[in-house]
């Protein structure tokens, strides 16, 4: 089995880049799935009158970049995987038409003894930039492998 030290050797190296084209339909689908009627995500006419000047994406819409894209496949020694939580910093609004590039790197790995035996905690950090190369958000997520 791969050791924690070997895994720690991947910190900062495992950068993965994912590009997401933000579309109105995608924002609407996400808002509908959540059950969030906020007009900022869906009502162009209403959103135009706000400080944003139009529809924006709900903060944290980019989850695939944070979750599925960020696993160093093959390097997690245990079979089970659970999301442990996350942190988001929102710096600029994300709009329909934006092209967001999310770059993820492994930030930390540590081991803990849980009820089910050894558990590995993987911390990933992602920087999200728009097409103007502005950082729109930063996120950290924890995946628990056990």
């Amino acid at each position: 089995m791969v050791s924690v030290d070997e895994l720690r050797g991947m910190i900062g190296k495992e950068a993965k880049v994912e590009v997401t084209q933000i579309e109105k339909g995608m924002i609407k689908k996400a808002a509908e799935a959540i059950g969030d009627p906020n007009p900022l995500w869906q009502d162009e006419k209403r959103a135009r009158k706000t400080k944003y000047g139009g529809i924006i994406a709900p903060p944290g819409l980019l989850i695939t970049a944070m979750m599925s894209g960020s696993r160093p496949e093959g390097s997690m020694p245990f079979q089970r995987l659970l999301a442990g939580g996350g942190e988001w910093e929102f710096l600029l609004p994300i709009r329909a038409g934006d092209v967001i590039t999310s770059t993820t790197a492994l930030a930390d790995v540590y081991e803990r003894e849980g009820k089910a035996g050894k558990m590995l905690f993987f911390i990933f950090e992602t920087i999200h930039k728009n097409q103007l190369d502005e950082v729109v958000a930063k996120s950290r997520s924890t995946l628990i492998n056990y």
Binding site: K51, G86, E87
Partner: peptide, 12 residues
């Protein structure tokens, strides 16, 4: 509309 969410974190 006029408020801004700056940071959010949560644990599952």
């Amino acid at each position: 509309d006029e408020g801004t969410l700056k940071k959010l974190s949560c644990q599952f």
